[in-house]
């Protein structure tokens, strides 16, 4: 379905048809931009390895970007958008990115489209208007991306808290809230009771 030109001359084609006929170029350029956001030495690895199991990061990025572009060029995006965004952002949420950098790649798509369609856009005011429509969609995509990114970060924090809660000294004492456990008095009691950290001499002094 993609990669071949639709019938009719290009000047009459609407922006979505143009995007569709340039699908592969857009995907490739956009993926390159995403890889550019990684440190160079690592980026080369991501680019070169194709095995989905040997290079899961690259695999997820490719899968996500391809999906997002497909969604964008169909005029009514489906639920799938979130899944594709998730594919990329779930990775970026655990990598060394500040939130802005983590989602910045979405905006690169605008640049990619303008580059790819530069010639057609230059003297076609109608296309420019349609482009604004596409760019609005991209803006919405960015907001959605941020939601998903934050969702992943929240998930991480939640997982951290769950692990802390599972720690035996908390369970032993029936403390369900880590912050309560961290209060000095409780910590002190716990230490005394469990001798988690004290030396044997300490416990002897307590008269066991």
């Amino acid at each position: 379905m993609f990669g071949r030109k639709k019938g009719g001359s290009e000047t009459k084609a609407n922006i979505y048809e143009l995007l569709e006929s340039n699908y592969h170029t857009i995907v490739k350029k956009w993926i390159d931009k995403v890889y550019d956001s990684y440190p160079e030495d690592g980026a080369k690895f991501l680019r070169n390895k194709k095995d989905p199991f040997a290079n899961p990061v690259g695999f997820r990025i490719t899968r996500g970007i391809e999906g997002l572009v497909k969604e964008l060029i169909t005029e009514e995006p489906s639920e799938g958008v979130e899944e594709f965004l998730d594919s990329i952002l779930r990775v970026r949420a655990v990598q060394d990115f500040v939130p802005g950098d983590a989602v910045a790649f979405i905006f690169e798509l605008k640049k990619v489209i303008r580059e790819v369609l530069a010639k057609q856009l230059r003297d076609n005011i109608r296309l420019m208007e349609e482009l604004l429509d596409v760019e609005t969609k991209i803006d919405r995509l960015a907001l959605l991306a941020f939601d998903i990114y934050m969702g992943c970060r929240e998930k991480l924090f939640q997982l951290k808290v769950e692990e802390i809660k599972k720690r035996p000294f908390l369970q032993l004492e029936g403390v369900s809230c880590p912050s309560a456990a961290l209060s000095l008095r409780q910590m002190k009691t716990l230490r005394e009771q469990l001798n988690l950290v004290g030396s044997r001499r300490d416990s002897e002094q307590q008269g066991h």
Binding site: G3, K49, K50, D51
Partner: peptide, 18 residues
């Protein structure tokens, strides 16, 4: 040894050694 699956632009998967 590792076998790569690659997709040609038209979607046909091809096999190649990395």
């Amino acid at each position: 040894k590792r076998i790569d699956f690659r997709q040609l632009p038209d979607g046909t998967p091809i096999l190649r050694y990395s």
